[in-house]
Design a protein around this nucleic acid. Structure first.
Lengths: 133, 133
DNA sequence: ATATTTACCTACTATGTCAATAGGTATAAA
DNA sequence: TTTATACCTATTGACATAGTAGGTAAATAT
């Protein structure tokens, strides 16, 4: 289940993509347009900044801006940055934490197949596809 | 993320499917074979019984048995029974709880598309496909 | 009858995650 | 120097997860 964090992150990104006009967009505006608490968005946008997806500057006239062109972002990288790995089962998370029963597990192949499908879906989907209405 | 409950439920079901020989299979055996605490499996198998997927009888010689033929179970119904709805975002859960912004939401169509893909994947996958090695 | 094996039931708990809120500091422009 | 913004640390209430503990009821074998 995708949490609010990832969903809101996506809405921040689409909002920024739509309101790009050379200026920096203050978070207050995004919060208002999206109807989400600005305080909560601060937490989320921080991840986007530290992950190098958006750029922020302080002070009057400050705000946020995308680092790249909207079509160069995949939904997957936005979700992974804010939600953590998109793995569908814990068994597929770490490389070293592999379950001792992995070799015999009858369900593992299905989880791998599912995981690949999910990964392909979200990393194949570009930010611009959400905006184009 | 699929939790242990759903994953273990699936392993109970495949175990039952593989060890069907006319007799009832005690949970103790399943727990041993699968290396999972029997106490915890009790909780999970209860859902399977009340959901009508398996049948259990008490007493010596008792245990559990599938209600249908293995090929008549989908992975999806097993997961939904034990994990609850497979919805990927809260927005898609209730029919009445629909977000007031649904009509304008730019991300909702993607979540719907994703949801359908997940649903099709798990409901299209039969229990027998996990066993066939 | 009684012992044994099994399902079935209720309750509890430790840990962690989610979805925020609160209150502050630093920075930059007017 | 005021104002608007980003940026930072800490806290909280509610809920879910992943079990554990200890019992009762039912059915079979002896």
């Amino acid at each position: 289940m995708i949490s609010t964090k990832g969903r809101y992150a996506l809405r921040i990104m689409t909002d920024l993509a739509e309101h790009t006009d050379g200026n920096y967009i203050p978070l207050k505006d995004i919060a208002q347009r999206q109807g989400i608490s600005k305080k909560y968005l601060e937490i989320i946008v921080r991840d986007l900044v530290s992950g190098g997806l958006v750029f922020g500057i302080s002070g009057k006239g400050g705000g946020y801006r995308l680092c790249r062109k909207p079509e160069e972002y995949s939904v997957g990288e936005i979700l992974e940055l804010t939600e953590g790995p998109l793995a569908s089962v814990a068994c597929l998370l770490g490389d070293k934490n592999t379950c001792p029963r992995a070799a015999d597990c009858q369900t593992l192949p299905m989880w791998s197949e599912f995981d690949k499908m999910v990964h392909d879906f979200f990393f194949g989907k570009k930010l611009t596809e959400l905006i184009a209405k």
